[in-house]
Amino acid sequence: MNKLIPFLIACIIFVSCGIQKEAKDDSSAAVNVMAYYVPREGYMPDQLPLEQLTHIIFSFSKVIDGKMQFRNENADSIMKQLVAQKEKYPQLKVMIACGGWTADGFSDAVFSEQSRTKFIASTIDFIEKYQLDGVDIDWEYPAIPAGGTKARPEDKENFTLLMKGLREAMDQLDRPQTLTFASAGWKRYYKNVELLEVMKYVDYMNVMTYDQAGGGTTFATHHTALGHRSLADIAETPLGVAMTQQNAELPEGEDLWEPQSAEEIICFCVDKGVDPKQIVIGAAFYGRGWKGVPPENNGLYQTNTGPISGGTSYSVLLTDFTEDDGYEKHWDAAAKAPFLYNLADSIFVTFDDTVSVKLKTQYAKENNLGGIMFWQLSSDSKDEASLLKAIYTEASKK
């Protein structure tokens, strides 16, 4: 899910977008809190704050020889340890995410009825082996070659057939199963899936409302903004000027370039007819940074000379990107997102913090979304600055 995606932006969608807000009900349940999870030292199954989650999605299994399988032999024992935690946390749903960025094999695995049957049967075997509560399909992306993956036009219909087949097979199991898929946070993706057909078979669509700017983006901008901004809002900035020029050169009928945001893509999906209760908003437990960023507007929407090197997980941002290291923290009220700027080193960093994930959780509650998810749990801190703690605290409020 942590991917380098270029800007793929489209037409303006007004923020209100028809999502029906309901009066607050003190008896209403908290929204789902779903964590994608990649194990690492210090974040093994018995070391996780599982009481703060409704779903944990182990990442990843892969499509290998047309079947769902683990590539890493250590994953088997860790998955079993994770499922064993349900004895202590019976509310927790343990799922498997199949795929991920640069994960190939989906297009071939679902190409024919025979190959789909093989993959679906292997998925059921996988669920039964580990006694899982569901599956998340992270195909990046149907009909769009990305990260070196194979894609063909038939993927659009075959993705629907895959999700239909999975739903039917999972419903035959002796316990309830949750079926989700990871969807992109940009509009071109939705031209390549039969969105409303797919939504008939899944419980939730986990919208990756991050990677709105990848490492190769030539402008320093937000990668996980909640707040909608139109092109007019940034028109005088270098990014706005570049977008305006590109729009002028586009053939008639092509999607226009616009700043991306979670509000925009969620409104887009609701306007397409998706039930808000099936939409899960995404948060990022990692940042993106660029070097060579000039100081105007504290680097926001300015040019850059390339991505910074090194890790930018949230826990690392807290320890290595501090005021003592020359980083000043800023808040963009329009984007509802924080960013860092280092004047001495000309570095700009975009990320989610406790305030922005709280606002995303509020947005999910106020707009009756299915919940909030994030990539990924072992990038969080374990102190009072924990992003999951901020999400859980807000999600639990009546």
Rank of each mutant, 00 (worst) to 15 (best):
residue 306 G to K: 12
residue 76 D to G: 03
residue 272 K to P: 00
residue 286 Y to S: 01
residue 158 N to L: 01
residue 353 D to Q: 07
residue 2 N to R: 09
residue 297 N to W: 03
residue 71 R to V: 11
residue 215 G to R: 12
residue 194 E to W: 07
residue 253 G to N: 01
residue 83 V to E: 08
residue 192 N to G: 04
residue 225 A to R: 02
residue 46 D to V: 04
residue 375 W to M: 02
residue 26 D to T: 10
residue 307 P to R: 15
residue 213 A to L: 04
residue 344 A to S: 14
residue 217 T to A: 15
residue 374 F to D: 02
residue 158 N to F: 01
residue 211 D to R: 07
residue 370 G to F: 10
residue 147 G to M: 09
residue 281 I to N: 14
residue 267 C to A: 12
residue 389 K to N: 11
residue 252 E to N: 07
residue 132 L to T: 11
residue 138 D to P: 08
residue 117 T to H: 13
residue 260 Q to P: 03
residue 398 K to E: 14
residue 270 V to C: 10
residue 185 G to D: 01
residue 268 F to H: 13
residue 15 V to E: 13
residue 248 A to D: 14
residue 167 R to M: 05
residue 342 N to F: 04
residue 46 D to G: 03
residue 89 Y to M: 08
residue 77 S to P: 02
residue 354 T to D: 01
residue 361 T to H: 03
residue 12 I to D: 13
residue 196 L to G: 02
residue 69 Q to Y: 06
residue 369 L to Y: 04
residue 296 E to K: 15
residue 393 T to E: 15
residue 233 D to M: 09
residue 133 D to R: 00
residue 204 Y to V: 01
residue 379 S to K: 08
residue 192 N to L: 07
residue 203 D to K: 13
residue 229 R to S: 14
residue 278 Q to C: 04
residue 362 Q to F: 06
residue 159 F to S: 04
residue 252 E to P: 00
residue 2 N to I: 09
residue 326 G to K: 04
residue 363 Y to C: 02
residue 63 V to D: 00
residue 42 G to M: 03
residue 298 N to P: 02
residue 324 D to S: 12
residue 53 L to V: 10
residue 20 Q to T: 14
residue 89 Y to S: 09
residue 393 T to M: 08
residue 309 S to W: 05
residue 136 D to T: 14
residue 199 M to E: 09
residue 196 L to V: 00
residue 328 E to Y: 08
residue 288 R to Q: 05
residue 355 V to H: 11
residue 303 T to V: 12
residue 161 L to D: 12
residue 206 N to F: 03
residue 79 M to E: 11
residue 59 S to C: 14
residue 36 Y to R: 00
residue 263 E to L: 08
residue 89 Y to P: 02
residue 265 I to C: 00
residue 395 A to D: 04
residue 97 A to I: 03
residue 215 G to D: 14
residue 255 D to Y: 11
residue 228 H to Q: 13
residue 275 D to V: 05
residue 289 G to I: 03
